[in-house]
Simulated assay, not measured.
Amino acid sequence: MGKTKTNHSNLQNAIIAFVAPLPSILFYLYFLTHYSEPDHSLSSLWSWCYHHPILLANVFFFFNINVLFWAIGHLQSSHWMIDPYWTVLPLLLGCYYATHPLATYNIWRSRAVILLTLMWSLRLSHNYFRRENWQWGAREDWRFTDMRQQYGKNWWWVSFFAIYFAQQVFLMGLSLPYYTIHAVETPLSMWDIAAIAVCLAGIVVAYYADTQLHEFSTKNAELKACGKPILPTLDDGLWKYSRHPNYFGEQLWWWGLGIFAWNLGQGWTFLGAFVNTLCLAYVTVLVEERMVKQPFRAEAYRQYQKTTSVWIPWFKSSSLEETKDKTN
């Protein structure tokens, strides 16, 4: 009975996830169809949609993500849906800017960026569903759960700003390079090659870091099921040189995307990547505070903090060798 209920919930959430973005998609396709009329006689609504691509994207996000996803989250008592959509919204925004009637761009730069974004999206989607045991909406982010307890009765309105409006600021800011890439038409340069290399490096680093973390978590789950002591800290692979290599890889991706826009004379779009870095710095603090609050790993993690770089992979601190010498 329990398994049947879980399968029903999984199917229901999958349907909701696929249907939820349709209002924006259908409206945009309707706009493109009407704009393609031979006389281009636009109504005031279509004229506004034509002349303000960034504002239109924000309107889509506000009503379709902020309002609709927020309402669905309260109906389900779980704000899970924003997590899997983090993996596809940048790809949707990139395609939106590429297909907007005002778009003008170098086709090879556009194709490279869209392909890279598809790779990034597949990597992040795979990691999300692998982590959630291939379930849709099995749980919401632990940070949202903590805030739900913190704000209590006020959570119904606080969640709109803390989860959804905040996501709009981050995602729309991070996605600004897509607009620049599809608004400036210049030949490819060596900076485009550098941007591609940085983006690829970010995707690869994040993939291997997430895979190593997943294998660590899976092994601990198996040890716990067998009644054996679990491993307190992941200290192998990329995690030997960085405490958060997955965050480092993610930042490489967004800063690499910013290089494309900087090369096109729009370096101000780095602001999105900068804000995201600040956000990840805050998340890093939350994650590490959570680690040291767990008795079984607190001591090991404090030692890990002393000897291992926070983000940028680097060699172990000499204090690790000093600790080993003392124990010997």
Score class of each variant (00 low, 15 high):
50 Y>W: 15
175 S>I: 11
290 R>L: 08
50 Y>M: 12
300 A>M: 15
179 Y>S: 07
133 N>L: 13
242 S>P: 13
30 Y>C: 12
84 P>I: 00
284 T>C: 10
163 I>Q: 04
140 E>M: 02
112 A>R: 04
311 W>R: 14
88 V>D: 02
254 W>D: 06
40 H>N: 12
83 D>A: 13
150 Q>E: 05
56 L>A: 14
186 T>I: 15
267 G>V: 09
277 T>V: 08
18 F>C: 09
69 F>W: 09
260 F>G: 00
99 T>F: 07
8 H>E: 10
319 S>E: 10
255 W>S: 01
181 I>L: 12
260 F>D: 00
129 F>A: 00
132 E>Y: 11
219 K>L: 06
88 V>N: 00
210 D>Q: 07
13 N>Q: 07
316 K>P: 08
268 W>I: 02
104 T>Y: 13
262 W>S: 12
168 Q>M: 07
85 Y>Q: 04
19 V>E: 03
323 T>A: 04
286 L>S: 02
185 E>F: 14
201 A>D: 11
164 Y>V: 00
251 Q>H: 05
213 L>I: 05
265 G>E: 15
47 S>H: 04
107 I>P: 12
198 V>C: 07
25 I>E: 08
308 T>G: 11
106 N>D: 05
221 A>E: 06
20 A>R: 10
281 A>E: 09
270 F>C: 09
28 Y>I: 01
28 Y>Q: 03
34 H>E: 11
9 S>C: 07
245 P>A: 06
252 L>A: 02
50 Y>H: 06
125 S>Q: 11
